[in-house]
Design a protein around this nucleic acid. Structure first.
Ligand SMILES: [Zn+2]
Ligand SMILES: [Zn+2]
Ligand SMILES: [Zn+2]
Ligand SMILES: [Zn+2]
Lengths: 141, 141
DNA sequence: TCAACAGTTGCGATTGGGTCGCAACTGATG
DNA sequence: CATCAGTTGCGACCCAATCGCAACTGTTGA
């Protein structure tokens, strides 16, 4: 399933003129298998564990390329190295548990609409936005 | 007026056990005079221009201290060094014009409330949040 | 007023995520 | 296949930010 997804992406990227190398193919498979929000170092490890050594510089370059192609999204939480996630999901924002580091996804149409309204009222349109809630479990002492 | 504010802050900080040095006093005056969102390098320059040389390391250390005291807030926009602003204002969020770099402040109670509701529904309370709209003027070619 | 000392400063070195230059390599095309 | 533009790995480098340390200085209280 994720393997199929990786193949799909390869085809689309090739179509867009992006050369599919051994390294990129491996990273696409790793990314397609993600259900979390790994950083570059973690992806580097996962590719290595999957049997394909990719240099860290190439990991960074590939991530930049894939982001430019709209395949993945970059997340920059407070005080951490950048994290990445596949872009082929419904748009969502993130909550970060400040005690455990856990990342929870959520969506809220009303917030999305309000953001657009605010921008529009001031004569702007939104290119991109960032909404992060740094939270703590209620009732923790 | 901003000078008064700086004196007030000095008193409160001293009360809290924070030593008021020549450097900190200068930075407090610079910060109290801010109506924008300067980064550490800019604050370093402003202090120097105001006649008090402060090393960049001390600027960074002082900013950390003042943030811990709740006097200022740290802003981390995408791909830029951190910026700072006095914390004694109404809470607000930011829009960043991606073409000009201009930073526009806004407030929206409904968004604030929705955020709290979302967190509460999942059993969390918000410690801190970040909402940034990266925008472009409408009708630009 | 001033001695004492814990907290602060400046400097230069260091960290850490991320980028770059370059020579060697390799997908894609015909 | 030959070709060659695009890609890789390596190590050097960049930049914001932090740190170690010796010299310095607010603050306290005698
Ligand atoms: Zn959103
Ligand atoms: Zn996500
Ligand atoms: Zn807000
Ligand atoms: Zn602001």
């Amino acid at each position: 399933m994720t393997k199929d997804r990786a193949r799909q992406l390869e085809a689309a990227l090739r179509e867009a003129g992006v050369r599919i190398t051994r390294q990129r193919s491996a990273l696409l498979r790793v990314l397609a298998a993600c259900d979390d929000h790994p950083d570059a170092t973690e992806l580097h490890l996962r590719a290595r564990d999957a049997g394909v050594a990719v240099s860290l510089a190439t990991v960074y370059r590939t991530l930049t390329t894939l982001q430019a192609q709209g395949v993945i999204e970059k997340l920059e939480f407070r005080g951490e190295p950048a994290r990445w996630e596949p872009a082929d999901q419904q748009h969502h924002d993130h909550m970060i548990d400040v005690d455990t580091g856990a990342v929870i996804e959520f969506t809220n149409d009303r917030i999305e609409r309000l953001q657009a309204e605010i921008a529009a009222e001031m004569g702007y349109e939104i290119v991109h936005h960032r909404l992060e809630l740094y939270v703590r479990r209620r009732g923790n002492g």
